[in-house]
């Protein structure tokens, strides 16, 4: 990928793709794919489901490219919105199914000791397990706010709700997460001091 394409905006890359530039697809995939996959992974909790959501969301992006009007919206916002809706659809279809916590990847961090590595892995597993206990919309809002670090207005656009509703969802979600994790403090290696 050349330097010019790497510096181009998502908007410009999408237009390039629609005009037949295959390198633009590679750059957009490298930029946006991991973000969508990360969110889908946190929201779905199952690797295979997250992969399906990511591929489908990106496919819809490719198909939408010829109609994209640059400057009207952010490509990433549009993509997050599609991905979140796909997650909701899949959750509805699979309601009653199990949550595969083992599918959550552990963070590779060779600079830490084995014990610390295991403890970090256990904490992230605990975070994911607590996230999966939240209602769907709360989980989405918390993931977009605290893991993707998106602004409340952007999340409001993605979830098609008001900014106040986003604030309410994230606040309630965060309290519920803290309560869920409080019972596992000792298990997760948090001291009482």
């Amino acid at each position: 990928m050349n330097a010019a394409a790497e510096e181009a905006s998502d908007d410009a890359l999408l237009v390039l793709y629609a005009n037949g530039d295959s390198r633009a697809a590679a750059e957009l995939t490298a930029r946006l794919g991991p973000r969508v996959y990360g969110v889908a992974m946190r929201v779905m909790g199952i690797r295979a489901e997250a992969e399906d959501v990511t591929q489908e969301a990106m496919l819809r992006l490719w198909k939408m490219a010829p109609e994209w009007r640059p400057g009207e919206a952010q490509v990433s916002t549009w993509l997050y919105r599609v991905a979140m809706n796909l997650c909701i659809d899949r959750k509805r279809r699979a309601r009653g199914g199990h949550v595969d916590l083992d599918a959550v990847p552990e963070p590779p961090d060779p600079g830490r000791s084995a014990v610390e590595h295991l403890q970090d892995g256990a904490r992230q597993d605990a975070l994911q397990a607590a996230l999966m206990q939240l209602p769907e919309r709360q989980r989405q809002a918390v993931v977009l706010r605290h893991l993707e670090e998106l602004s409340n207005p952007e999340i409001a656009g993605i979830m098609d709700i008001s900014t106040e509703a986003v604030e309410s969802l994230t606040a309630r979600g965060k309290r519920a997460l803290a309560a869920a994790l409080a019972g596992r403090r000792e298990e997760l290696g948090y001291s009482d001091g």
Partner: peptide, 23 residues
Amino acid sequence: EPRALPDHLSAAILADAAHVQPG
């Protein structure tokens, strides 16, 4: 956490992109 797409997923996404690309 470092975030990256699994290789097979990245390949599938790019194959989709090539398949539906205008022209």
